[in-house]
């Protein structure tokens, strides 16, 4: 199944081929967790603070669904 992944801010350095806000299409087997997908993409676990699926936060151990819009987000804030 296919999902699309975005990374932002300091995490962009691990997927340098992506433009700002650009999505990477990834094929994953059914049952893949967000943690496994993160590792597959080479994103360091300790730099990923938030994971979003379709705009809602999920946990690393949750399972990816076909067609998900996924974002890995580092420590963030501002105002």
């Amino acid at each position: 199944m296919q999902v699309e992944v975005r990374v932002f801010a300091t995490l962009r350095r691990y997927l340098p081929e992506l433009g700002i806000g650009e999505a990477k299409k990834v094929e994953v087997p059914a049952g893949t967790t967000f943690a496994e997908l993160r590792d597959l993409l080479g994103l360091p676990a300790d730099e990923v603070k938030i994971i979003m699926r379709n705009g809602l936060q999920v946990e690393p151990e949750d399972v990816v669904q076909d067609g998900d819009r996924i974002a890995y987000i580092p420590a963030t804030g501002g105002g």
Partner: peptide, 24 residues
């Protein structure tokens, strides 16, 4: 991680939030 040298705020400013709040 957010406020250290090279962290999100230091590297991108408060506008580091733009893509993230948009995603949310």
């Amino acid at each position: 991680d957010l406020t250290k040298k090279g962290g999100g705020l230091n590297a991108y400013g408060t506008d580091v939030l733009m893509n993230i709040i948009n995603e949310a």
